[in-house]
Every structure is written in structure tokens, then in C-alpha cells.
Design a binder for these strands. Structure first.
Length: 141
DNA sequence: CCCTGATTCGC
DNA sequence: GCGAATCAGG
């Protein structure tokens, strides 16, 4: 008949007291964790939150190694589209036109060529007739 | 390899 | 706020 609800793993004053007590005794997080039936992480986590300080283990971590590098935020797109090309911008295609991220070189061109110095050398490789600019792998579409 | 504690991140 | 995960040192 007792309306005893299941303990939702909540740190009650009692448990917190035990935690502080055992912690003050000099027990380690692992010991306290075993005593209270929680993981040492839970103990150290609660201890840290409670404001308890660990005298031992003056371990110092470098900086913020824990970072989520998976945060691709589109803030600025420096991709040159075909409409951004002018008479003095290299029209050398970068990547495959059918692929996303395809763009043009955009570097300053030389003479009256539609390409920059580097790409012009590739385009007009010694021959009288200009070769195909992009080294297409295959056009099996 | 075992332990310790500290910080960060997801729920 | 809680704890696991991760990191850092002994």
C-alpha cells in the first residue's frame, strides 16, 4: 500500500550527504561509486556540480580537445560560378560539371587567353590546336 | 594495465 | 541535472 514511486536516479539530500561524507572521508570516486551503487563518473560528475573539489590528482588537461568538428556551417561561399567570370578571369573548370562544387579557376588571365598562366600552359600544350581543357575521365552518361 | 580525477557532450 | 564518454596523468 505504500505509494513508493521508483527512484528516478535522483540525487536526494541523503545521497548527496553520503557522497559528501564519503568524499570527505577520503574515498575515491570509484569507492564512493561502488558504495552508493553508481558509476565513478556519476560521483565525480555530481561532485563537480556540487562544487566539491578534488585535492588529489592535479591533472591538467591541455585545452579544449573535446570539440565537435562536425559543424559545417555555410557562412560564406567563395565558389565562382560561371556568371562571375569576366574577360580577365580564368575559365578553367575545376572538378566535374555534373558534380556539386564544380567551379572555375577565376584567377587573372594572361594575354588574351581565357585561362590563367598555369591553366593556359595545360590547355595549349605545345600544339597548334588547343586541347580539351578538362581531363575528363569518362563521358559515359 | 590498473587506477585516479576532470571536462565535455548528449539525453 | 544526470551520467556516459573522453581525456589526461600516475
Amino acid at each position: 500500500m505504500s505509494g513508493e514511486s521508483a527512484e528516478p536516479m535522483v540525487w536526494t539530500d541523503e545521497r548527496i550527504e553520503q557522497l559528501k561524507e564519503l568524499w570527505a572521508e577520503g574515498l575515491t570516486t570509484g569507492e564512493i561509486g561502488k558504495r552508493l551503487g553508481v558509476s565513478k563518473n556519476a560521483v565525480v560528475g555530481k561532485a563537480h556540480r556540487l562544487g566539491l573539489k578534488g585535492r588529489p590528482s592535479p591533472i591538467k588537461r591541455t585545452k579544449a580537445p573535446r570539440q565537435t568538428p562536425a559543424a559545417p556551417k555555410e557562412k560564406e561561399q567563395k565558389i565562382r560560378s560561371v556568371v562571375d567570370l569576366s574577360a580577365h578571369t580564368c575559365r578553367w573548370p575545376i572538378g566535374d560539371p555534373r558534380e556539386p562544387g564544380f567551379h572555375f579557376c577565376g584567377a587573372p588571365t594572361i594575354a588574351n587567353k581565357p585561362y590563367c598562366a598555369e591553366h593556359a600552359a595545360i590547355a595549349y600544350v605545345g600544339a597548334s590546336s588547343p586541347k580539351s581543357p578538362p581531363p575528363r575521365d569518362e563521358d559515359a552518361a
